[in-house]
Simulated scan of single mutants.
Amino acid sequence: MKGRLTEAKDKLVVLAFLPSYCAHSYMMIPEVQQLAKTYAKTTSFLRIKEEHDDIYEIFGIHTVPTFIFMQNKKKLLVRTGASVKQLSDTLEAVLNGDYTSTTTTTQAPSSYIISITSPQHLNETMSRAGNQLVILAFMTKWCSKCKKIAPKIEAMADEYYGSVMFLKIDDDVKTKELYTKYNIQRVPTFVFVRNSKKINQYEGTWYEKIRTRIELQDFLNF
């Protein structure tokens, strides 16, 4: 990779962290390849596969897809998420010099799961989701099964950051009515919502079933 960066000189280089194990990254590959062809004269795209874990570690990549824009071996900015339009718009902005490296860099949050504190907080958060899939994770502090699956959910929220919003709802005084509203009988329970409408639900700790519902959400409507 160092050789490719040296060869590029002042040409824009986009490091595309697109591992095959991530469904959203894998689905973006052909579209990123098309962008690479379209901007071939001005930009070099380098796909970083999962086997290059040392490069992931060097650049501190904790969520995918991630795109790092570089020029003259210097990092200009970072974009995360599976939006090809966002990637294309960012590319145009960088090529036109219409960006500021200190203000437009997008970093993933330290926590990928938003803890909901009240029904109003939930409504406000879901209103920002737009058409994005939202997963309401009803998990309590006292539930041993919740503690068991929590790291897996955290990793999944990391993996799908930018395309799926994970909201954690504990059972306390301020959120209790949400358990009633969604008829939560046991925990952990995961409610799938799009445009404020419930489309699916899963109860249990087999996290791969959650992944299946994410990948097949358009075919498994509740």
Rank of each mutant, 00 (worst) to 15 (best):
M28V: 03
K197I: 14
L87P: 03
T90M: 02
K37W: 03
E50G: 10
Q132N: 10
D158N: 11
L87Q: 00
L12H: 05
T100L: 08
A150T: 14
I116F: 05
W206S: 07
S44V: 15
T43D: 08
N221T: 15
L133N: 13
S127G: 00
T42L: 11
Y39D: 02
N123F: 04
R213M: 14
Q71R: 15
M165K: 15
A108K: 04
V13K: 05
R47F: 08
Y99T: 01
A40H: 13
T212W: 14
T66W: 04
S196K: 13
T38H: 14
T180E: 12
Q132G: 03
V191K: 04
S20D: 07
D89M: 01
I199C: 13
R47A: 04
Q120W: 03
K75W: 00
T104V: 06
T189K: 04
P119N: 03
I68T: 02
I135A: 02
T90P: 00
C146L: 07
K141I: 13
N131L: 01
I149G: 08
T104L: 01
Q86W: 02
T125E: 14
W142G: 05
F166R: 09
D218K: 15
K181Y: 09
K168A: 12
T205Y: 04
N131V: 02
S88T: 14
N195K: 15
S111D: 14
H121R: 04
T103V: 12
E208K: 15
I135N: 13
G204F: 09
P151Y: 11
K181E: 10
K9W: 06
D170T: 11
L35N: 06
I68E: 03
L35E: 10
L220D: 15
